[in-house]
Computed example of a mutant assay.
Amino acid sequence: MKKPTFGPIILAFIIVILLISIPNQWISGVVNKQTANHLSNSLSTTVFQGIAVQKEVMKEPNFVPIYGSSELLRFDSFHPSNFFEKYDPKYTPFLIGRGGTQSLIHFLSLSSVYPYLKDKQIVFIVSPQWFNKRGLDEARFSPNFSKLQAIELANNNQIPIDIKKRAIHRLLDYSIVKNDHMLSTVLKNSIGEKTNQPADNIMANYLVNPYLSIVKKQDIALSKFNVGARIFNSNHYTTPENKSYSELLQMAEKQGEKTSTNNPFGIRNSIYSFHFANKINDLKNINTKVSYNVSPEYGDLQLVLDLLKSAHAKPLFIVIPVNGYFYDYTGFKKENRSNYYKKVSNEIRSSGFDIADLSSHEYEKYFFRDSLHISLKGWVYIDQAMEAFLNHKST
């Protein structure tokens, strides 16, 4: 009978001890400005679920974090990643988000870099579809949730306690948080809500710091070596140089005219053919009872607003519309859409922040690529709003 060998087990044990015992500050320097610059348009989950790269982004004044969702990966000639390279290269847009990264997910990202937010200019794109009746559901929350950032929130004593309590109670609505005994105990303990389960308290007190030490090192390593990152190649698109915004809009109009000829909604031909053509009759008046008037997302957005205000950050909020032609066709009432635009804009303005309200462009052809995702003319308007905000211009 072959004798068991314990060498691999002992080696693994030694590696774990080293990972826990090596101070994070010894290796934190491997993630630097160059790392962040390389990952600026990767939309990597490592970035928005981590901390190491986002800290570098916040520390460097030339990086402009853009928080959003699925619209960020709709690259074209007028996308901010291309526009600023040609028109204002002192700024580098840094994209944070993907589909499902709504206000609560962005709150966690922002809370993890809270000490660096003071006077930092950031851009936050608010999408209408976030504000459905359910808000951010479990299916979109879970794959975008960061346990590392949640523990950092628990450990952060700089964040005002009322904001912290509201955020933690909201996080505990989700099973991925609620059913994680160590995490839920750490979160509750951080706001003075003790659990009656001794085992949970022992786990929280003795395991969370070793766990955090390992995960932070993992964050640094994955960020440095670009694990899982898809680096966008700006050479795929040619951004016209030395043009006025009106000229850029005309060029976007011409591009849109060429690519949107098979439908009355201004949707790109390929997208319409693949996603809409076969079911277009079924979509007629399907949303007559739908509105964005009531949604948990308003509370989640308020968390972001309150966090940024307490940190003395300098955000620009961009309120984007939906494709009015398509939403009219599906029966989503214009009155309900207008109520949403007013409600979300008033919520932002009441916090005293800058806002670029683009809701008047609902019926502007080629502002969208589909029913709600911006591109072409939409990006030109956003570029203009961002450039004015960053350079303190009036629009």
Score class of each variant (00 low, 15 high):
Ser223Gly: 08
Lys224Val: 02
Phe225Gly: 09
Asn226Gly: 06
Val227Asn: 03
Gly228Thr: 03
Ala229Gln: 03
Arg230Val: 12
Ile231Thr: 12
Ile231Leu: 15
Phe232Pro: 01
Phe232Cys: 03
Phe232Arg: 02
Phe232Ser: 02
Ser234Lys: 14
His236Glu: 14
Tyr237His: 13
Thr238Ile: 14
Thr238Gly: 12
Pro240Leu: 08
Pro240Ser: 07
Glu241Phe: 08
Glu241Lys: 10
Asn242Tyr: 14
Lys243Ile: 06
Lys243His: 06
Ser244Glu: 04
Tyr245Asn: 13
Ser246Asn: 14
Leu248Asp: 01
Leu249Arg: 00
Gln250Asp: 10
Met251Ser: 11
Met251Lys: 11
Ala252Gly: 08
Ala252Gln: 02
Ala252Ser: 14
Glu253Trp: 11
Lys254Pro: 01
Gln255His: 09
Gly256Trp: 01
Gly256Phe: 04
Glu257Met: 15
Glu257Pro: 06
Glu257Trp: 06
Lys258His: 10
Lys258Gly: 03
Thr259Trp: 13
Ser260Phe: 01
Ser260Asn: 03
Thr261Leu: 12
Asn262Phe: 04
Asn262Arg: 03
Asn263Gln: 04
Asn263Ala: 12
Pro264Glu: 03
Pro264His: 02
Phe265Trp: 01
Gly266Lys: 00
Ile267Pro: 00
Ile267Lys: 00
Arg268Trp: 15
Arg268His: 13
Asn269His: 09
Asn269Lys: 08
Ser270Trp: 13
Ser270Arg: 12
Ile271Lys: 05
Ile271Tyr: 10
Ile271Asn: 07
Tyr272Glu: 15
Ser273Cys: 03
His275Ser: 13
Phe276Arg: 01
Phe276Pro: 09
Phe276Asp: 01
Ala277Thr: 09
Lys279His: 10
Lys279Val: 07
Lys279Ile: 10
Lys279Met: 05
Ile280Pro: 05
Ile280Thr: 06
Asp282Gln: 12
Asp282Met: 09
Lys284Leu: 11
Lys284Ile: 02
Ile286Pro: 07
Ile286Ser: 13
Ile286Ala: 10
Asn287Gly: 04
Asn287Glu: 09
Asn287Met: 09
Asn287Asp: 07
Lys289Ile: 07
Lys289Cys: 06
Ser291Arg: 01
Tyr292Phe: 13
Asn293Val: 07
Asn293His: 11
Val294Met: 02
Ser295Val: 14
Pro296Trp: 05
Glu297Ser: 09
Tyr298Trp: 08
Gly299Pro: 03
Leu301His: 00
Leu301Asp: 13
Leu303Ile: 04
Leu303Gly: 06
Leu303Lys: 03
Val304Pro: 01
Val304Ile: 08
Leu305Ser: 10
Ala311Arg: 00
His312Met: 14
Lys314Asp: 14
Lys314Ala: 07
Lys314Gly: 01
Lys314Arg: 10
Ile318Met: 12
Ile318His: 03
Ile320Asn: 00
Ile320Glu: 00
Ile320Val: 11
Pro321Lys: 05
Val322His: 01
Val322Tyr: 04
